[in-house]
C-alpha cells in the first residue's frame, strides 16, 4: 500500500487506531478448525460448510436473486473452499475469505449469464432481433414493476468495473454494514488503508456511473 499512501493523503486518525494489535486468529478455535480442514479432515470441512452455508446462501440470493441458481453457486463456493483451503494464510478471517469467494462466484455467474444472453441474441435472425429490439422499450415502460431488478442490474454493472478487492470491501461496508474498524479486523489491514481503498473504490464507482449514464448500451 506504499504507492497508494504516496498518491493520496492518508486520513488523519486518532491515536486509538494508530496501530492495532492483530487478533491471533490462527490460534483461535476457528483457526484450529481451519488447520484441521487444511490437513484433509473431512469432518472439519463439513463443520465449515454447516457453519457458513446460511450466510453464503443469503449473500448469493442478495446478489443474484435467482432462487434456482443459488444452490448451484453455493455448491461451487464450497467446492472452491475445499480445494483452496490449503492456501488460506490466516491474514483475514475465514468468513471474510469465504465472503470474497462467494462474491466472486456471483459476479462470475452474472458475467457468464450476460455472455450467454449475448450469444443467444446473436443466434437470432434479423427479423427476430428487430422484434426483440422493438419489444424492449415496452418492457421498460413497465419500470415500476421491475424497478428493483433494474437498480440491482445497474449496481452489478458498476461493481463489475472495480477490482475484486475493491468490490469485496464495498460489499462488506455497504451491503453487510461493517464498520471500517471491523473491516480492519476482518482483513488484517489497518484502518487508514481500508479508508483509502474504499475512497478509491467509491471514486471509480462514481466515474463508472457517469460513463454508464452517458452510454447505457455500453454496460
Amino acid at each position: 500500500m506504499g504507492s497508494a499512501a504516496g498518491a493520496l493523503p492518508l486520513p488523519v486518525l486518532g491515536s486509538r487506531v494508530a496501530v492495532r494489535k492483530r487478533v491471533d486468529y490462527e490460534n483461535s478455535q476457528e483457526g484450529g478448525l481451519v488447520r484441521r480442514a487444511q490437513s484433509g479432515d473431512e469432518a472439519a470441512f463439513r463443520e465449515i460448510v454447516e457453519r457458513y452455508q446460511s450466510k453464503v446462501f443469503s449473500i448469493i440470493h442478495g446478489i443474484v436473486r435467482q432462487r434456482n441458481d443459488v444452490e448451484d453457486i453455493a455448491q461451487q463456493v464450497f467446492s472452491k473452499v475445499y480445494f483452496s483451503i490449503r492456501n488460506f494464510d490466516f491474514r483475514s478471517s475465514l468468513i471474510t475469505w469465504i465472503y470474497k469467494i462467494t462474491v466472486n462466484e456471483c459476479f462470475d455467474y452474472l458475467r457468464k449469464k450476460k455472455v450467454r444472453k449475448l450469444v443467444y441474441e446473436s443466434d437470432l435472425s434479423e427479423d427476430e432481433a428487430r422484434r426483440v429490439e422493438n419489444t424492449e422499450p415496452a418492457v421498460n415502460r413497465q419500470a415500476p414493476v421491475d424497478q428493483n431488478l433494474a437498480r440491482r442490474d445497474y449496481v452489478v454493472k458498476l461493481l463489475m468495473r472495480v477490482s475484486e478487492e475493491e468490490r469485496t470491501l464495498l460489499m462488506l461496508k455497504e451491503v453487510e454494514g461493517r464498520s471500517v474498524e471491523e473491516l480492519a479486523m476482518m482483513t488484517g489491514m489497518n484502518e487508514n488503508t481500508i479508508k483509502v481503498k474504499l475512497f478509491r473504490a467509491r471514486q471509480k464507482l462514481v466515474k463508472a456511473a457517469q460513463r454508464l449514464d452517458r452510454n447505457p448500451v455500453a454496460g
Partner: peptide
Amino acid sequence: MQELSNALGVLRAGEEVTPPAGFYARVAER
C-alpha cells in the same frame, strides 16, 4: 458517493435463505 452508497443497499439479502436438506452431501459430490 452518497447516492451510490444508497444504491448498493439493493444487494442486501432481504430474507434469510435456508439451505435445502442434503446440501453438504451435494457439495461433497461436487
